[in-house]
Amino acid sequence: KTVHVNGVQYDFDNPEQAERFAKEMAKKAGLQIQFHGDQIKIE
């Protein structure tokens, strides 16, 4: 899974790890999470 945070890309082999990371980042920055198939976007 790939997580995009403000244009920066983070790759994870483990989907659960990717989602946990995305939730942490979104919570910290007060941003929205969008799921697009294999990609998670935080903007």
Rank of each mutant, 00 (worst) to 15 (best):
I33S: 05
H36V: 13
I33F: 01
F12D: 04
D13F: 01
A26H: 04
G37D: 14
A29M: 15
N6G: 10
K28P: 03
Y10V: 07
G30H: 09
I40D: 09
M25L: 11
G30M: 05
A18P: 00
M25I: 12
G7M: 02
D38W: 00
I42K: 06
N6I: 03
K27T: 12
Q9V: 10
V8S: 06
I42V: 11
Q17F: 08
E24S: 03
A26F: 02
A22I: 13
P15T: 11
K1R: 12
F12T: 03
A26V: 03
E43P: 07
Q34E: 14
A18F: 08
Q34W: 05
K28V: 13
E43M: 09
I40F: 01
F12V: 01
G37L: 00
G37T: 08
T2Y: 00
F35L: 13
K23E: 14
V8Y: 08
D13M: 05
Q39V: 14
D38F: 01
G37E: 14
H4Y: 14
K23Q: 13
F35C: 15
E24Y: 01
F35T: 12
Q9F: 07
N6P: 02
K1D: 03
F21V: 06
I33L: 09
E43D: 11
H4G: 02
E19V: 09
I42T: 07
D38R: 00
E43F: 10
V3C: 07
K27I: 08
Y10P: 04
E16C: 15
A18M: 04
Q17V: 08
A18G: 03
D11P: 09
L31M: 12
E24T: 01
K28W: 01
K23S: 08
Q32F: 00
A26R: 01
E16K: 06
V8H: 08
D38Q: 03
D13K: 00
E16R: 03
V8K: 11
D38G: 03
F35E: 13
N14C: 15
A29R: 06
K41I: 15
V8C: 15
Q9M: 08
Q17E: 14
R20L: 10
F35R: 12
V5E: 01
M25T: 05
Q34R: 09
Q34D: 14
K23N: 12
T2F: 00
P15Y: 14
K1T: 13
Q9E: 09
K27E: 12
V8G: 04
G7N: 05
E16F: 05
D11L: 08
E43K: 06
T2Q: 10
Q32K: 12
Y10C: 15
F35Q: 13
Y10L: 06
V3F: 00
Q9G: 06
N6E: 06
G37Y: 01
M25H: 04
Q34N: 12
Q34T: 07
P15W: 14
N14Q: 04
E43I: 12
E19P: 01
E19G: 01
T2D: 01
Q39F: 11
G7E: 04
D38I: 02
Q32R: 08
P15H: 12
A29H: 15
T2V: 09
V5C: 15
Q32A: 11
K27M: 07
F35V: 14
H36P: 13
A26S: 07
E19R: 07
N14A: 05
A26G: 07
D13N: 04
K28G: 08
Q39C: 15
Q32G: 10
Q34K: 09
Q17Y: 06
K27C: 15
D11Q: 09
I33A: 01
V5R: 01
E16P: 00
F21I: 05
K28Q: 13
D13T: 03
Q9N: 08
H4L: 14
K1S: 12
H4S: 10
N6V: 03
D13Q: 04
K1H: 13
A18N: 04
P15E: 13
A26P: 00
L31F: 08
N14D: 14
K41T: 14
N6A: 08
H36R: 01
Q39K: 06
F12R: 00
N14T: 14
E24H: 02
K41C: 15
N14H: 05
E19S: 02
G37K: 06
H4T: 12
E24F: 00
E16L: 06
E16M: 08
A29G: 10
Q39G: 09
V3Y: 00
E19D: 11
E16H: 07
V5I: 13
A22T: 03
I42L: 13
A22D: 08
Y10S: 02
I42W: 01
A22C: 14
E19N: 06
Q39N: 08
K1V: 14
K1E: 04
Q39W: 11
I40Q: 06
Q39M: 13
E24M: 00
Y10Q: 04
R20W: 05
A29K: 10
I33W: 00
H4P: 02
E19F: 04
K28A: 13
G37H: 04
G37S: 07
V8P: 04
Q34G: 08
I40E: 08
R20E: 14
Q39T: 13
H36T: 08
G7C: 09
K1M: 14
G30E: 08
V8A: 05
I40V: 10
Q9W: 10
E16A: 10
H36F: 14
Q9Y: 08
Q39S: 12
V5T: 03
F21T: 03
F12M: 04
L31G: 08
F21M: 06
A29E: 13
D38K: 00
K1L: 14
G7H: 02
V3S: 01
V3L: 04
Q39E: 13
H36G: 10
Q32P: 04
A18C: 10
Y10M: 07
A29T: 14
K23I: 10
M25V: 10
K23P: 07
I42N: 07
F35N: 12
A22Q: 07
A26N: 05
A29I: 13
P15V: 12
V3N: 03
E16N: 04
V3Q: 03
E43Q: 09
R20Q: 13
K41M: 13
V5M: 10
K23V: 10
D38E: 10
A18T: 04
F35H: 13
V8W: 07
D13S: 06
